[in-house]
Structure formats: C-alpha cells, structure tokens
Computed example of a mutant assay.
Amino acid sequence: MNSPRFEPFQDRLSRDIRNELSASLPLALAQNDLAPARAVAARYLHQDLAPPYVAYIETRLAGYAKALAMITQLPAETALAKALVFWDLGLFFEVHEILEQAWHGARGTEKEMLQAMIRAAGFYIKGEYGYNEAGAKMAARAVAALEKNRQACTGFELDTLLERLRNLDPNPPKLMRS
C-alpha cells in the first residue's frame, strides 16, 4: 500500500484541508488573529492524520503567523500588498485566495491585473504538484495580461515575475520591494 501524500488535485482530504485553511485567512487577517485558522487546523489535527497532512497544516500555520506579523508592518494593507507577503513566503494558494476576493469587486485594468496575478500564483501551485502543462498555460495567460496591464502592476517586481513566467522557471521570484 502506498503511503499517503498531500496532493490536493487528487486527494479529497488534502483539498479540504487546503481549502478550509485558506478560507479562514480573510477573517484571520481582518481580526489580526490566527484563531480562525487555528480552529480549522485543530479540527483536522484531532483526527488521526498521516504525517504529510499534519506537516502541511503545521507548515501553513507557521507561514500564516509569519505573514500576519509582516502584514502589520505594511504601509498600506491592500489586497495586493497582503498577497505579496504570502507570495514571498511561498504560500501561493493563499495568494490566490486573497486576490480572488479582491478580484470579485474590481473593475477594468485592476480586475485583469488581479486575475493575472492569480494565474501567476496558479503556475506555481500547479508546478508544486507536477502539473507542468496546465501550469504553462496559466503562466502564458498571466504574462499576456500582465504585459497588457503593466501600468496597474505597481509595488512589486513585475519584470522579474514576467521573466520567470516566460521561462517557466519553477523557482518563484520574490516580488516585494525592499
């Protein structure tokens, strides 16, 4: 029997854990408190989970704590600024979660830019699990939209991101400016 691995595209438990943890983020960010994420984590950790699931949960909670501390230091707490913190921590599904909420209320150029950043994050999400062909399609669409909406792409290292996406570089760039 194969030992379980955390794989949200093939395993329902993995997908549920990932989705529920990331869905707790907006409330945790609004409250500046990880209690909502910890509650989700505790519900899963009280089950007899295999080590890959436990490791994912613990790694995510540690990343969320680090992100929350960094976000409180931001000069402006926009959705993009928050997402960039998660990006630089390698928490790409959470980038998707944060930007998707902002995307729903956005219009025009901003909406297209947010969708492009969601797709850019999707490239790294897909790549993490070996879905390189699907990731490449997302990267191409992200590049096209980011180029088209370049004027809206402020506050982060756009050219570095574009280069990495064009080259399908599996190593994500740091996007926050020092």
Rank of each mutant, 00 (worst) to 15 (best):
A69L: 03
M117H: 04
L84F: 03
Y44P: 03
A144I: 07
F86H: 10
E77M: 02
V143P: 03
A37V: 02
A69P: 04
A55F: 13
A83C: 01
V54H: 09
Q115C: 08
D88N: 04
K111T: 01
E94M: 02
T72E: 15
Q47M: 05
W103L: 02
F86P: 02
E94S: 13
E77Y: 01
A39H: 11
A39C: 11
A121G: 05
L99I: 09
A120F: 08
T109P: 04
E94D: 12
G63A: 13
V85W: 03
I57V: 03
A140W: 03
F123M: 06
A81L: 08
Q101N: 14
L61P: 02
A136L: 11
G90K: 07
A41M: 07
Y124S: 08
M113S: 14
G122W: 00
A76L: 13
M70A: 15
P52L: 09
A142P: 01
V143M: 03
V85L: 01
H104A: 02
T72P: 05
A136S: 13
E100G: 10
Y64H: 15
V40R: 09
A79P: 08
E97F: 04
G63L: 09
G63V: 15
Y44M: 08
I118N: 12
P51E: 03
H96V: 04
A42I: 01
A67N: 07
G135K: 02
T109Q: 12
T59Q: 15
A42L: 07
G122V: 05
L114W: 08
R119S: 12
E133I: 13
A106N: 12
A120G: 06
F123K: 07
A134M: 02
P52N: 07
A50H: 00
T72M: 15
I71C: 14
W103Y: 00
K126P: 01
A69G: 00
E58I: 00
M113F: 07
Y129S: 06
A120V: 08
Y44W: 11
T72V: 14
M117T: 03
T78D: 08
G122M: 09
E128A: 13
T78M: 11
A140T: 10
E112I: 01
D88W: 11
R43Q: 04
G63Y: 04
L80M: 14
A83S: 10
L89R: 05
H104T: 06
